[in-house]
Design a protein around this nucleic acid. Structure first.
Length: 590
DNA sequence: TGTGCCTGCCC
DNA sequence: ATTCTGC
DNA sequence: GCAGAATGGGCAGGCACA
């Protein structure tokens, strides 16, 4: 099978936003794919599941640019400035990404050369597989050589999609769910079978495997896929709503509330003495948390799958450590040493499998009850919970969760149909964070001092803007974060017009921008925007309130999002250093 | 051997 | 993670 | 309301290079 067959599907997908049309193209592709290549098509399109343990390709945008620079003899700087320029253009011309750029380079070169033999799907796939295996000194060079030789044999279109694949995002509007629907139609002529396939995928999170199984053994084999201890289950996710009142209404007037701990989600599998741990995205965490494995080992059953939130805990102060400190535990080396430094607790909140029985289709109430029976006297806790039937106790429980150092609560349905809906972000679980209920006083006003150009569907507008606080003492603006979320397309267009007259070539002397941070464009400090975040964090990067709380660290914002433009404010009316310091202190009193 | 850039993955 | 948008 | 695509801060680790 030619790689061009895959590429032409990508091109068609890229040219439509209609889901049904996309699915048609995918069905056509799947139908003409030989059985032995079906999994590879899926891996090339969606990426491979990483829980299997293969090394990553370890190559993304910058190394792709370096490769292109070497193979075409164009300096890296030139490629980067070209990209910056085309990203300022509208996305209509579809040449705003690195892949398309390589395509045009190939197009120019190809004129004088004999057309190379078309690439095959196996050839492209096996080159990527080979690149995964390179490590150690000189490995980047070898990866670049492999990619360069692939590009050397590629047509302009092929080159474009090879680069997009390496960049890790095809961004053609398809992902797992669309592929599953296409599978159902291609192999069973009945799109309602997508539920069966999705269900199997939830238990065996490898669509390449599922596709091949379907191709070889049919839908019956897919129905037979069951939980296997040691293979991760796709995690159930929570929806969000604006108020506790809405949540109660959605859940039928009553629900269970659980603390939303600020840590890492862990799915633990126990088979006799063998314990393995998975992250929310199904990466292995087994090696990182030997202490958690010990806790699980202490549970007196042979087969078990459960989930909990792993939080760093300060034993002497008897309170949680910030998420940032827990992150020190995500490491490969010095685990034994660091595990003493950052002790963790696991707050267990769900039971997925026990003995020989799946609990996925049991109700929340039953799962929770079984869980409480299991988690006794072995160093583990269950997530703190309470059943509520009205807003008042809801708010009280929420307040307590904040006082105890949590982010908020997860409201869970206690109806009879409240199953563990693997892989789904449905309304059986609804999260409500403290940050949702903050009033306007808790947002901050930042002066915009620069921006990056957007990519993909945001080509032609800014993809992110840099925000700064005002420092009264020095009469200067200190960058504190970058904002990209919360913009509607209208606002993005407005920003283009608003900032056009403010563009400057050289940094304004009153603006302090950390040297590692290089915006695509700079603005003289003028426009103020309102920004909301979940919390203020210590920042190794940004210089706002630098050194006030920690040596060589400033303050930044976790999950910053744009709220509105504040035309009524002058740059000097922005949040000041003193105010930010005050906010940080208040937040840490809790 | 130290530093800076890049990547992948937590949220 | 948050947020927006086409279907 | 789903599915997908824009984008955030910040941690460790791998590699290149001085």
């Amino acid at each position: 099978m030619k790689y061009l067959d895959l590429v032409s599907t990508y091109e068609k997908l890229d040219n439509t936003t209609k889901r049904l049309e996309m699915i048609d193209h995918l069905v056509e592709l799947i139908k003409k794919t030989p059985t032995d290549l079906i999994d590879k098509i899926f891996y090339l399109t969606l990426g491979e599941p990483s829980w299997i343990g293969k090394p990553e390709i370890g190559m993304a945008e910058k190394l792709a640019i370096k490769t292109i620079s070497a193979s075409f003899g164009i300096p890296v700087k030139k490629i980067e400035s070209h990209l910056k320029k085309v990203r300022g253009l509208s996305s209509e011309n579809r040449t705003t990404d690195l892949g398309s750029f390589v395509g045009t380079l190939k197009g120019k070169k190809q004129m004088t050369l004999i057309k190379p033999k078309p690439l095959t799907v196996s050839q492209v796939y096996s080159t990527f597989e080979k690149m995964r295996t390179f490590s150690g000194s000189g490995s980047q060079e070898r990866k670049m050589k492999s990619l360069a030789s692939l590009l050397g044999n590629a047509s302009p279109k092929e080159a474009k999609w090879i680069i997009r694949t390496i960049e890790g995002k095809l961004r053609v509007g398809i992902a797992e769910m669309t592929m599953i629907e296409a599978l159902a139609i291609a192999f069973t002529d009945d799109k309602t079978n997508k539920e069966i396939i999705e269900n199997a995928y939830n238990l065996r999170c490898d669509l390449g495997y599922i596709a091949k199984e379907l191709a070889v053994n049919g839908i019956k084999a897919i129905k037979n896929i069951k939980i296997q201890i040691g293979n991760p289950i796709r995690m159930m996710l929570a929806q969000r709503l604006a108020t506790p009142e809405e949540i109660l209404e959605k859940l039928g007037g009553k629900c269970a509330l659980e603390y939303k701990y600020d840590g890492i989600r862990i799915q633990a599998h126990k088979n006799e003495d063998k314990i393995v741990l998975f992250s929310r995205n199904l990466e292995s965490l087994t090696e990182q948390f030997p202490d958690v494995r010990e806790y699980i080992k202490g549970i007196n059953v042979n087969q078990l799958i459960l989930e909990g939130e792993c939080v760093a805990y300060d034993i002497t102060k008897n309170k949680f450590k910030p998420f940032q400190e827990l992150m020190h535990r995500r490491r490969k080396y010095d685990i034994d040493k660091v595990k003493e430094q950052f002790r963790v607790k696991l707050f267990v909140f769900d039971l997925l499998f026990l003995g020989r029985k799946s609990y996925l289709n049991e109700s929340y109430v039953k799962r929770r009850k079984e869980l409480e029976n299991l988690i006794k006297n072995n160093g583990l806790s269950t997530a703190k919970n309470l059943i509520v039937e009205s807003p008042k106790p809801f708010y009280d429980f929420l307040d307590n969760s904040i006082k105890d150092g949590c982010e908020g609560v997860i409201a869970k349905s206690i109806q009879i149909d409240s199953i563990y809906k693997a892989g789904a972000r449905g309304f059986l679980w609804i999260k409500y964070k403290h940050s949702y209920q903050e009033n306007l006083g808790d947002s901050i006003d930042l002066v915009v001092v620069g921006a990056n150009m957007g990519r993909g569907k945001w080509a032609g507008v800014y993809g992110a803007v840099f925000g700064a606080i005002y420092d009264k003492d020095t009469d200067s603006f200190k960058t504190t974060c970058k904002i990209a979320s919360g913009f509607t397309e209208d606002v993005l267009k407005t920003l283009m017009d608003l900032f056009d007259p403010l563009r400057i070539k050289k940094q304004d002397p009153r603006v302090e921008l950390p040297k590692e941070i290089k915006p695509d464009v700079l603005f003289s400090p003028n426009i103020v925007i309102e920004v909301r975040g979940d919390e203020i964090t210590l920042s190794p990067t940004y210089s706002a309130a630098f050194g006030e709380f920690k040596e060589n660290a400033g303050l930044s914002i976790r999950f910053p999002r744009f709220i509105q433009i504040r035309k009524d404010k002058n740059p000097e009316d922005a949040t000041t250093t003193d105010e930010l310091i005050q906010m940080f202190q208040n937040q840490n009193k809790k």
